Simulated assay, not measured.
Amino acid sequence: MGRSASAAPAVMVEVEDVVVRISNPDRIYFPGVGPGAGVTKLDLAEYHLSVGSGMVNALRERPCMLHRYPKGLVGQPGIEKVHQKKVPSGKPSWVETVSVHFPRFDRDVDELCVTRLASVIWAVQMSAVEFHPWNSRRADVERPDEWRIDLDPGPDADWARVRRVAGVVHEVLDELGAVGYPKTSGGSGIHVNVRIEPTVTFADLRRAAAAFAEEVRRRAPDDVATTWWRKDRDPAHVFVDWNQNTRDHTVAAAYSVRGVPSARVSAPVRWDEIDDCVPDDFTVLTMPARFEALGDLHADIDDHPFDVASLVEWAARDEAAGESPIPSAGSDHGAP
């Protein structure tokens, strides 16, 4: 990786049975990363090819928002990041979409719906760096099939604390009989994905996630926060962000690159690796070899669906006791 930033002709990339044209292949997206001038647009395409089956597994059939960086990594002077929900016009016919409704604006939007690797490479051509899928699939967008546990460290929380909280999460999941699939967030935290039966609403999944978060807090009160308002949290605590299970809230997919200077990725890890890894272990430079050696650590997630009914019961218990971290009806909880 790491080519010259000078102008270069487009590169044609063959993916499955289609050819994707990569324009400006030498545009630098991550300056200073790697042996040359930095990671280029073509490097990003090659990265996604190298982890292709894992990326498609994480995105398959899900509405997907893109974080696009038309001129490269955010932070360069004059560069803006674009949060792209609507698929750009002029897409190839083989790029599939799914229509989702946004009540706040009373409009329907066609979002990218990945069913094949070529669609991922096309999105890279459209300057996408981050892929943020919904936790529901297009067969029934209103019924989530993935519960997401987001361990979001406060500004004074170190990685050791995140690791400890991950261990408690694993313990509670095991007791529930739920199979969790951890990954680094690509930032400073950890995500754990759990496949669930698509039988509950987003509102009930959010309630269930909040009840789970409260149980983790009870077991690790010196490390965990669940309260919604940031001002009420200890900055050294890890927020178990139950609100990520709200409709249209998304997190970076497994294998997604993140828009941070080191070109980290959101990397699936085994539970027994968490104590020995740090987020910077997983970048666009290191992940291809790891993927080749280990394959997709989330490959069998669909084989282990969990029924969240027991957690919905926990939620009802906590609500009755006044212990739910979800703000009461009518309060403003749109922003922490």
Rank of each mutant, 00 (worst) to 15 (best):
S185I: 05
R164T: 11
D174Y: 00
H170D: 09
G154N: 03
W159E: 00
A178C: 13
P155N: 07
P182N: 12
E171G: 01
V192N: 06
N193R: 12
Y181M: 06
V169Q: 01
V165L: 12
Y181D: 03
P198H: 13
R161W: 00
S188W: 03
P182S: 10
V172T: 02
I190T: 01
T201F: 08
L176G: 05
A178L: 10
E175V: 08
R161P: 02
G187N: 11
R163L: 08
R164S: 14
T201M: 14
G189V: 03
E175D: 15
S188A: 14
T184R: 04
D158V: 07
E171F: 07
D156M: 13
V169G: 01
K183H: 03
P155D: 11
E171S: 14
D158Y: 10
K183A: 00
D158L: 12
I190R: 00
D174W: 07
A166I: 03
L173Q: 05
V194T: 02
V200K: 11
P155Y: 05
D174G: 15
R195F: 08
V192S: 09
S188H: 14
S185A: 10
T199W: 05
L173I: 09
P198E: 08
V192G: 10
Y181N: 03
K183Y: 05
L176R: 11
